[in-house]
Amino acid sequence: NQESVVAAVLIPINTALTVGMMTTRVVSPTGIPAEDIPRLISMQVNQVVPMGTTLMPDMVKGYAP
């Protein structure tokens, strides 16, 4: 099972992602793959992401799977 990126904290809208904001977990449905965390650093979320929420591609500005 592939791990997906999950919010480790509440991430406010338009916040640039940092390593500490993200964790990984096997979830269903799957979100952004864990191995993409290095690509996500400094990208901004386009909505509020509650802690424990799986990051989906459409939540991150400029992210393309």
Rank of each mutant, 00 (worst) to 15 (best):
residue 50 P to Y: 08
residue 16 A to L: 10
residue 43 M to F: 11
residue 17 L to Y: 00
residue 50 P to Q: 13
residue 54 T to G: 02
residue 62 G to Q: 11
residue 44 Q to P: 06
residue 31 G to H: 02
residue 4 S to R: 02
residue 33 P to C: 06
residue 55 L to N: 01
residue 64 A to M: 10
residue 51 M to K: 08
residue 42 S to N: 12
residue 4 S to M: 02
residue 10 L to P: 12
residue 24 T to A: 09
residue 15 T to F: 08
residue 44 Q to D: 03
residue 60 V to K: 01
residue 26 V to L: 14
residue 19 V to A: 13
residue 56 M to S: 12
residue 33 P to K: 05
residue 14 N to D: 14
residue 31 G to Q: 03
residue 55 L to R: 00
residue 22 M to G: 01
residue 17 L to E: 00
residue 26 V to P: 08
residue 31 G to R: 03
residue 55 L to F: 09
residue 32 I to T: 02
residue 53 T to I: 07
residue 33 P to M: 09
residue 11 I to D: 00
residue 15 T to A: 13
residue 10 L to E: 14
residue 29 P to M: 04
residue 43 M to V: 12
residue 38 P to S: 08
residue 12 P to G: 11
residue 39 R to S: 10
residue 26 V to H: 09
residue 52 G to H: 13
residue 3 E to I: 04
residue 59 M to G: 01
residue 47 Q to T: 05
residue 5 V to R: 00
residue 35 E to F: 05
residue 43 M to I: 05
residue 38 P to R: 07
residue 33 P to T: 06
residue 19 V to Q: 14
residue 44 Q to G: 06
residue 48 V to G: 09
residue 39 R to Q: 12
residue 20 G to E: 14
residue 34 A to M: 06
residue 44 Q to T: 15
residue 55 L to P: 00
residue 4 S to L: 02
residue 31 G to N: 01
residue 65 P to I: 08
residue 60 V to T: 02
residue 32 I to N: 01
residue 59 M to V: 11
residue 25 R to M: 10
residue 58 D to V: 11
residue 29 P to L: 15
residue 52 G to T: 11
residue 45 V to Q: 00
residue 63 Y to H: 05
residue 50 P to V: 07
residue 38 P to L: 07
residue 33 P to F: 11
residue 31 G to E: 02
residue 36 D to W: 08
residue 48 V to Y: 08
residue 26 V to F: 05
residue 21 M to G: 02
residue 27 V to R: 05
residue 35 E to G: 09
residue 50 P to I: 08
residue 33 P to V: 12
residue 5 V to L: 07
residue 21 M to W: 03
residue 10 L to M: 15
residue 9 V to I: 14
residue 28 S to R: 02
residue 61 K to Y: 11
residue 49 V to E: 00
residue 2 Q to V: 12
residue 13 I to G: 12
residue 16 A to Q: 15
residue 23 T to P: 02
residue 65 P to Y: 02
residue 61 K to E: 09
residue 4 S to F: 04
residue 58 D to K: 12
residue 28 S to F: 09
residue 15 T to V: 14
residue 14 N to E: 08
residue 62 G to W: 07
residue 1 N to L: 03
residue 47 Q to F: 11
residue 46 N to H: 10
residue 63 Y to M: 13
residue 56 M to I: 11
residue 45 V to M: 06
